[in-house]
Design a protein around this nucleic acid. Sequence first.
RNA 1: GCCGCUGUAGCGUAGUGGUAGCGCACAUCCUUGGUAAGGAUGGGGUCGUGGGUCCGAUUCCCACCAGCGGCACCA
Length: 641
Amino acid sequence: MIELVLPDGAKMSVESGIKGVEVASKISEGLAKCAVAVKVNDTLMDVTTPITTGGTFSIITSKNPEGLEILRHTAAHVLAEAVEALYPSAKATIGPVIENGFYYDFAGIIIKEEELPKIEAKMAEIVAADYPIERKMMARDEAEKFFAERGEPYKVEIIRDMPGDVKEVSVYTQGDYVELCRGPHLPRTGMLGKAFKLTKVSAAYWRGDATKESLQRVYGTAFFNEKELKAYFTMLEEAERRDHRKLGKEMDLYHFEEYAPGDVFWHPRGWTLFQTLIDYMRKRQKAVGYVEINTPQLMNRVLWETSGHWDWYQENMFTTTVEEKAFALKPMNCPGGVLVFKHGLTSYRDLPQYIGEFGRVHRYEASGAIHGLLRVRAFTQDDAHIFCTPEQLHDELQKVVKLMVSIYEDFGMTDMTIKLSTRPAERIGSDEIWDFLEKGLAEAITDLGYTYEINEGDGAFYGPKLDFKFRDAIGREWQLGTLQADLNLPERFDVNYIGEDGQKHRPIMLHRALFGSLERFTGVFIENTAGRFPFWLAPVQVMVAPVTNDQDEYAKKVLKRLQRAGIRVEADLRNEKISYKIREHSLKKIPVIAVVGKNEAAEETLTLRRLGEEKQIVMKLEDAVKQFKLDARYPSVEYDD
RNA sequence: GCCGCUGUAGCGUAGUGGUAGCGCACAUCCUUGGUAAGGAUGGGGUCGUGGGUCCGAUUCCCACCAGCGGCACCA
């Protein structure tokens, strides 16, 4: 006999070897019916696997997040069975659960999007057949032989590559289909139900390695009921409406041309937004001691060889040769910053130094990587390099993180994840330096009460980094802010400061960008706000709209008054009905429409309609000016008045 | 870069082996209307680019360019 402790603390004594589903039916038959899996001592197991050890015990149903993962994992197996049935040349590889669904990768076939309904129909047949899904253990060499005979070379490779101490593996059978898998799974294919859908096809590399063969990936998703499935697709459709590429066109912010793939043509309204972001950042940075520099776009290749970028990234650099001298467009601002710092001698008394640059950099991104404003070939970083002593490192890192978070809060962007990227396999600098810097970054974050995830081996070649990631409309993660610690560039460029002892010492260099790329930040921000910018950021803050042309003179007067107050204002004097103008400027997401008619002209007032609000407010012109001036102020910036 | 898909006016789209429509936008005129589309008329297209097949190609084939979805990459 073994003892199981239920979630409510109740203890249950059962014979060893009992199945999870049998335990469930002891509690209630209903529970047994909807049990997806069980959890014994934090290990998930199939409901049909004999339980031989006592301990904590819980039943996983559709209510648990683990339940949904198991459902989707089983859906992936059903997908694999359907594909192998429909495409005899298909070889199954792997099919994991991912956020919002699952996928399965196949070798030996090409599947087009229009073939997905056919596969879904086959999956439905497998569900209708309601095969029991059975787990059994196989000796490792037996399993290898078994899958080799079934013509599943990828399964064989997976078994071969398992660690040496693995002696047996689990396989799952549903009908004639057999899959190598750790499990657990739904007890029967019928439990998958109807709430699944294949969503897209794409290519993927075997084992994520671009030098290996290309596989056919099929993505899908599954839920416990059709209502949730439908809600998921509704949510996706709404998210697509927030796509910055769509809103960028609708709001007339920017466009691209074939002549310059991945390089933005900013329109007046988009550029105003862009410049406002820079203006805001400049004020925030100035307030905490940053200075600003500007360095050349094009610098001699020798500089990039010194910095190490040539060795690492020459494939991704734009280069040109003039009079037999090779130059490269800067892909980073750091060497420029280093040269400015190095120009002259710096005393320890003058550290730390905060040297900022709104630097435009060019990187030849792979053609398939370009994505709207989120991944471009020319972008502007709100870059800064901080030179400090090792003793100052901890404080300086914390200051950057605090400033970064405060800035995101001003934009209402609080849903971020912080990643610590550690030393890559190929790098420069000694292990002692990496140890010191990785520890410094980790402590800076934890000491401030934030948590981070580790991206093993994902650091830059010259140092570890903290990345601040945000999601776009449909949930893809994009890195915005970055904070990098670097002892290598100072070494390579022989950067020094004069210490108290009169000797030269090596400073630590921090690289940091808070927006990261202004272009990317703009894109993510558009998607986060669905284009409804706060007043202080809106490219056009107020649109003056006369009811009839009789009020044109008053409208012009209002326009001039607001312009003089520094408000970004336009007047729509076209011969159109007021409802037409309201509609048009609302669609362009202009925060305030100031309607002026006969009454307003007579009384020197404005009737204000704020975006998204039905109610109208009548204000004296001068009161409105005061209000707009307050609304236009940047958050977290001190104003003297 | 890899695999698949797409490319028709500024934007959104229909369509075809016999050189193209529609809506919005734009222009002119009528209308001067108080909170999400008033009406009429009109201009605008080498159907992504270059080759090929064909009597004839925007349509079929090939290459290239660009975009989209993933993968790989991302200092």
